[in-house]
Amino acid sequence: MAATPWEGELPAQLKERFGSEIGECASYLGQNFVVARPDAVIPILEFLKLEADFDYLVDITAVDYPNRAERFELVYILYSYGRNERVRVKSMIADGAKPPTAVPVHTGANWLEREVFDMFGIEFAGHPDMRRILLPEEWEGFPLRKEYSIIKQDDRWVKENLGIESGQ
């Protein structure tokens, strides 16, 4: 089953407001999503929050597609308490690109973006505290990138801090 176009009032509003910034409004298994240009993501989140009542930022995450020119897909999952609806906002960004932070729109984006940075190495421009969150600050490498093998680790860090050759 492939994604079908998402019809309705909201996608129409989004297309009218953001025009060519929006690539695709679609549904997969009843779940709606919007694909947008990276620069438009924060204005879209703002629009959805203020004018469409999507006031709850559920999650921010990324997916790594190393073979694509713009290898990371950023995914923002939103929910509206008033409408009882979910929508996902997605955008593709290249390695090294610095997408703007969502913290001014949703305070809760802070840790979620830090985790994306920690795992994928995507830096968010304007983030108040862009540091690793789960891994040690001196750790090298970004584990959720596809080239990072499941048994790989930062050998130097493990040796220096744990005094062992390998954590495996």
């Binding site: 089953m1 492939a2 994604a3 997969y28 298994l29 779940q31 559920v58 999650d59 995450t61 997916v63 995914v75 999952i77 979910r86 996902r88």
Partner: peptide, 22 residues
């Protein structure tokens, strides 16, 4: 599963527990 992605969440004792699977 066919190519695609879903987000499914439940009310866990601590709050919304969600899985986003691609």
């Amino acid at each position: 599963p066919a190519t695609g992605e879903v987000y499914v969440s439940i009310e866990a004792p601590k709050g919304e527990l969600g899985y986003f699977v691609v």
